[in-house]
Design a protein around this nucleic acid. Structure first.
Length: 230
DNA sequence: GCGACAG
DNA sequence: ATCTTGTCGC
């Protein structure tokens, strides 16, 4: 149900990885609104690692956007393909995530990533990269501001403030719970920032983090445990 | 050169 | 990300 554009080869060095980002960044689509919140499917993806055993486990969990009920799940396990380098996270996470998405029995709809999209040193973070490779609408919801600056949003849920790279707005700090640390939302591919924030609010009725990432996080950890045991 | 740095 | 117990609070 999901067709992934397979790269010619996975980069082995940081230099190659940066070149791939420079090459693909031009394919990001930022002038589409994206699906309406509360309709269709919303899919969370996340990854867990066991560095000692060189194992990575990814999970994709499809939710009904209206009810937030789980529609489908898939996991994928493999070897860790790239070290963690700030700005190159996608090369560490994407192979397993794409495999999990391909294993889903239904269309993912909007994909919610744990990390950034446009808010990235070369404006091509994980969510944008995943979007370009799959053609799916995608957004990034991160737990930390990375290298970006922001002023604290007002304390009420729903308040936002610009996430800034210098003077350029690359995303928004979004308060999803009253008085709780905001999350950091950025557009990934085929979704605008306003809609990305609306989706994030629709996915956070009871917790700081989106229901999509919470469930994908739980599932990939379980998949990693089971892979380590076997 | 040094520090900071999504997960 | 991951290493890690109990504890405060809804």
């Amino acid at each position: 149900m999901t067709t992934v554009r397979i790269p010619a080869g996975w980069p082995a060095t940081e230099e190659q990885a940066r070149a791939v980002q420079e090459e693909l960044r031009g394919e990001v689509v930022l002038d589409e609104t994206g699906p309406a919140p509360g309709t269709g499917h919303v899919t969370g993806v996340d990854v867990a690692y066991d560095d000692g055993r060189d194992l990575v486990a990814a999970a994709a969990v499809v939710l009904d956007a209206a009810t937030l009920g789980t529609v489908a799940e898939a996991t994928a396990v493999g070897r860790i393909p790239f070290p963690y380098v700030p700005g190159l996270l996608a090369f560490r996470e994407l192979p397993a995530v794409l495999a999990a998405l391909e294993a889903l029995p239904c269309a993912p709809g909007l994909v919610v990533c744990d990390g950034y999209g446009l808010a990235h040193p070369r404006r091509f973070g994980l969510a944008s990269h995943l979007g370009v490779l799959t053609g799916l609408p995608a957004i990034g919801v991160a737990k930390n501001p990375f290298t970006f600056r922001y002023d604290d949003p007002a304390p009420a849920r729903g308040s936002t403030s610009p996430l800034l790279a210098g003077t350029e707005e690359v995303g928004r700090a979004l308060r999803t719970r009253d008085g709780v640390k905001p999350v950091f939302v950025s557009a990934g591919h085929r979704v605008d920032i306003g809609n990305a924030c609306a989706h994030t609010l629709a996915l956070t009725p009871g917790h700081r983090l989106p229901e999509t990432t919470r469930r994908a996080d739980a599932l990939c950890r379980r998949a990693l445990r089971e892979a380590s045991a076997a």
